[in-house]
Design a protein around this nucleic acid. Structure first.
Lengths: 137, 137
DNA sequence: AAGGCTCTTTAGAATGATTTTAAACTAGAT
DNA sequence: ATCTAGTTTAAAATCATTCTAAAGAGCCTT
């Protein structure tokens, strides 16, 4: 199976029509490497790859991939959106000084006790962000 | 001590010059009630109180109060900033459907094990957000 | 392989929260 | 009362993201 066909199939399974743009972005983001991207950094990657995708489509695609569970949105500040290509259950260190996000392995944080969700609700996800700063002395 | 003097003192202790606007906002936000506000909802409160503070100052003040530790910024989405008047260590339920944020009592979530911070770094804060959704059946 | 229907992409305009600006103002020290 | 640095103001600017209307492309049916 060609790589292109592989990603097209992946998109179909996710309920997304495999357009040229979505396949190209999937090839960049869904190749198994674990990293964090922004609309901006992704656009750079696309350009570097000698391709062009309009800004609106980059945003749409990131949102659609996230909704489809192919990406995960990480909340650390309100400046712009961050997406994690690792959708496995894991948490993050965040260093505000350098706007640096680092994955914490799955077993690095253990939640011994979760509160019950409010009546009529269920837990969808648990996000843990550990804010860190460089030590002074 | 008049209420005004009380809040002025509180601001001085936090390293902020107690201006008319900051004292007014402190009186609204730092009275001990635990709640979540946005720049917008705060502006409404100010108006309801028969006062006026310019938009820029509302934003500046929220940022300054946060930096001074009088408020806490809560990260749940990238649409606008949320501030918590409760600065004690606690976590949140977040229901995206209604953009509803609910405090979890301090002992509701227990982190049994924290990972060590990366070399040369120390942990500044641990934020836990439990995303919830209403149950279908 | 052509037609058609719907979904998608595009460039550019629009939106909206937040920040910046430059001038007017004020808290607090002298 | 006076001075100065910090603050407030209204308005403009910024910037990530979304929206728009028209052009394009999957893909199903002939």
């Amino acid at each position: 199976m060609t790589p292109k066909a592989h990603f097209a199939e992946k998109l179909r399974l996710a309920g997304l029509r495999p357009t040229r743009q979505r396949v190209a972005i999937a090839a960049l983001l869904l190749d198994g490497r674990h990293r964090h991207v922004t609309a901006d950094s992704l656009t750079e990657e696309i350009t570097t790859a000698g391709l062009h995708v309009s800004g609106g489509t980059v945003y749409n695609t990131l949102n659609q991939f996230t909704e489809a569970g192919l990406l995960r949105r990480v909340m650390v500040h309100n400046d712009y959106s961050l997406f994690d290509t690792n959708t496995d259950h894991h948490h993050h260190f965040y260093e505000a000084e350098n706007d640096q996000l680092v994955d914490i392995p799955h077993d690095g944080v253990i939640l011994a006790q979760l509160p019950a969700a409010p009546d009529g609700h269920e837990i969808k996800a648990v996000d843990v962000v550990i804010h860190i700063q460089s030590k002074n002395p």
